[in-house]
Design a protein around this nucleic acid. Structure first.
Length: 236
DNA sequence: CCCTGATTCGC
DNA sequence: GCGAATCAGG
């Protein structure tokens, strides 16, 4: 084993996984491990699911059970006994329910922002959004979630030497109340997050909300795309 | 083809 | 427990 799953690495894995990073990105960030390793570990940790392209369907069928025995390093021998699924316990699937019907609130009139329906992430829930005073999109207090942190750049092999990130806000310090805006680049010794108090109801502080949620300007009045974290040139 | 995550199974 | 190989959907 080249690199073992230390507590920190596991914590990072969790954070990123839950944060919406892809397995590849997490693997890059951790360094020294493959995407598969990350996924495998994630599953072993109990994490799983999340937008996966190959998961939505529900026709497990039974064909794949015999579709792999070949092509492997050694004699495939054979699959584990087809232990049929759980025999007893029909389990009356409890009605999940829970789509927490978000109250059709029209944004927090903190400063008298007008509300306007804007496409937001959340397939089922009504999109409650409005423009904030700074011109950034404002979400309904009820449906904010998934930080979807900006994706880190791709990197292969470089293992993070050690997380000596002094008192800066590290990945592990993130919580619901501090700004998650990334400062610097992942992998750098001084990579950290903004860390200041968030704009209530948002994943970022007021300043970064303005950066994250940009209002759409009228056609023709568009300004050149401002730099975003990770995707482009350094932002700091 | 690329990407994704899921799964299997030898180690 | 780990992760390469493999599968499978987008």
């Amino acid at each position: 084993m080249a690199v073992s799953w230390t507590d920190e690495r596991i914590a990072t894995l969790k954070k990123m996984w839950e944060g919406g990073s892809t397995a590849s990105q997490i693997a890059d960030e951790l360094g020294g491990v493959s995407r598969n390793a990350v996924i495998g570990k994630a599953h072993r940790l109990g994490l799983k699911s999340r937008p996966s392209p190959v998961k939505a369907n529900d026709k497990p069928a039974k064909k794949k059970a015999a579709a792999k025995p070949a092509a492997k390093k050694a004699a495939p021998a054979k699959k584990a006994a087809p232990t049929t699924k759980q025999p007893p316990k029909p389990d009356p699937v409890p009605a999940p329910a829970p789509v927490p019907t978000p109250a059709p609130i029209t944004a927090k009139p903190t400063e008298g922002g007008q509300s306007q329906p804007i496409p937001n992430r959340a397939p089922d829930l009504p999109k409650i959004v409005s423009y904030g005073p700074g011109g950034f999109l404002r979400q309904g207090p009820g449906d904010q979630q998934a930080p979807i942190p900006p994706a880190p750049p791709r990197r292969r092999v470089p293992a993070k030497p050690s997380p000596e990130i002094a008192d800066k806000t590290t990945l592990l310090d993130l919580n619901d109340r501090i700004c998650r805006w990334p400062m610097g680049h992942p992998g750098e010794p001084d990579f950290h997050f903004c860390g200041t108090k968030v704009n209530p109801g948002f994943p970022y502080c007021v300043e970064h909300c303005g950066r994250a949620y940009q209002a759409q300007l009228p056609r023709g009045a568009r300004r050149p795309p401002p730099p975003l974290p990770f995707g482009g040139p350094r932002v700091r």
